[in-house]
Simulated scan of single mutants.
Amino acid sequence: MNIVGVTSCPSGVAHTYMAAEALEQAAKKKSVGIKVETQGSSGIDGLLTSAEIAAADYVILTNDTNIRGTERFRGKKVVQLSASKIIDKADALINQLLKKN
Rank of each mutant, 00 (worst) to 15 (best):
M1Y: 01
M1R: 07
N2V: 06
V4Q: 01
G5P: 02
G5E: 05
V6C: 01
C9F: 03
S11T: 14
V13I: 14
V13F: 08
H15V: 02
H15G: 00
Y17K: 03
Y17G: 06
M18N: 04
A20L: 08
A20S: 14
A22C: 10
L23P: 04
L23T: 11
E24S: 05
E24F: 00
Q25W: 02
Q25R: 10
Q25L: 09
A26F: 02
S31V: 13
V32W: 00
I34C: 11
V36N: 02
V36A: 07
V36M: 02
Q39L: 05
G40F: 02
S41G: 14
S41N: 15
S41A: 14
S42G: 08
S42Y: 08
S42V: 09
G43E: 07
I44D: 01
G46K: 01
G46D: 05
L47W: 04
T49N: 09
T49E: 08
S50T: 13
S50L: 13
E52G: 10
I53E: 06
I60V: 15
L61G: 06
T62C: 10
N63G: 09
N63T: 06
D64Y: 00
T65Y: 03
N66W: 05
I67Q: 02
R68H: 15
R68W: 15
R68V: 15
R68P: 12
G69E: 07
G69I: 07
T70N: 12
T70I: 10
R72C: 13
F73P: 05
R74N: 14
G75T: 03
K76M: 12
K77F: 04
V78R: 11
L81V: 04
L81T: 02
L81N: 07
I87G: 04
K89C: 14
D91N: 09
I94F: 00
L97A: 06
K99V: 14
K100F: 08
N101W: 01
